[in-house]
């Protein structure tokens, strides 16, 4: 089962992780990852995340479905926030559940690599030095090639 959530409001990572795949006694491995707004230059005040409503949800569902097709997963969760976030806030999380850990770990990494450069989000940093859009990196693009 795939669950994709795109929202501006904070989410409760602990509660989400605890509820994820609860009761699925057939799934022996759960991997969770959460991304935090990093203080990039000792002066990041705000990270602004823009997205493409409609396409964002579709793209995330497509990426999650691709993960389900490649690995044996019982449950997949993707939560991604948008709007204005401060350093230290949680931006997003993914969770995967499988019978065995290898599938859960690999699928979680795959989800992260793909949602970094194939889901329509754009980050803008507001620091003391000014404001600027975060550039995509060649590493992000190269990360897709291993899958």
């Amino acid at each position: 089962m795939i669950r994709v959530v795109v929202q501006e409001a904070p989410f409760d990572f602990g509660a989400e992780a605890a509820a994820f795949a609860r009761g699925r006694t057939d799934l022996g491995a759960i991997v969770t990852f959460s991304g935090i707004v990093r203080d990039v230059a000792d002066g990041l005040s705000v990270m602004e995340i823009e997205h493409y409503p409609g396409m964002t949800e579709k793209a995330l569902e497509k990426i999650a479905a691709e993960a389900e097709a490649r690995w044996s997963l019982g449950e997949v969760l993707v939560i991604h926030r948008h709007g204005r976030l401060e350093a230290g806030e949680q931006i997003m999380m993914v969770a995967t559940a499988s019978r065995h850990r290898k599938h859960a770990f690999e699928a979680a990494e795959f989800l992260m690599d793909y949602l970094k450069s194939r889901a329509p989000f754009w980050k803008k940093e507001h620091t003391e030095a000014g404001t600027g859009w975060v550039d995509a990196t060649e590493e992000d693009e190269a990360a897709l090639k291993r899958w």
Partner: peptide
């Protein structure tokens, strides 16, 4: 049709 720079999610 939508135009945008390379995406930076995650």
């Amino acid at each position: 049709v939508a135009f945008f720079p390379p995406m930076t999610g995650g």
